[in-house]
Simulated assay, not measured.
Amino acid sequence: MFKRRIGPHPHEGDGNGSGAANSCPDIWELDSGDFAIIGTDQTAHLRPHLPSDAFLDPGEGIVVLPRQVLVKARESIPLE
């Protein structure tokens, strides 16, 4: 199911958004070609602030990924 990590390991180097051993924001490509995000669930906090044209369906949530994680993963994200 999990095909490959997108970007560096969460504990590799400094400033990857992982402050401790139990905080591991991460991006994974799945066998299906979709992506799985490991981050902080901020649904309850951010739902009331969604723009009027954004919606959460049942089963969906808002996951926050530290900026630095996505920036470091940029070169590993497939274009197609």
Rank of each mutant, 00 (worst) to 15 (best):
M1W: 13
M1G: 14
K3Y: 13
K3C: 05
R4D: 07
P8L: 07
P8V: 09
P10T: 10
P10H: 11
E12I: 02
G15S: 08
G17Y: 00
S18H: 13
A20P: 03
C24G: 09
C24Q: 01
P25H: 01
D26P: 00
D26V: 05
D26M: 02
I27D: 01
E29W: 02
E29H: 02
E29Y: 06
S32I: 05
G33N: 03
D34Q: 12
F35M: 06
A36H: 08
A36Q: 08
I38S: 10
D41Q: 12
D41Y: 06
D41K: 00
Q42L: 07
Q42I: 03
A44E: 06
H49P: 04
L50W: 03
P51I: 11
D53A: 06
A54E: 08
A54K: 15
A54N: 04
L56D: 02
L56S: 00
D57V: 10
P58M: 11
P58Y: 13
G59K: 07
I62F: 14
I62W: 06
V63T: 15
V63C: 07
V63Y: 11
L65G: 03
R67N: 06
Q68N: 15
Q68L: 15
L70Y: 12
V71P: 11
V71I: 15
K72N: 06
K72G: 00
A73R: 05
E75F: 12
S76D: 14
I77G: 10
L79P: 00
E80D: 13
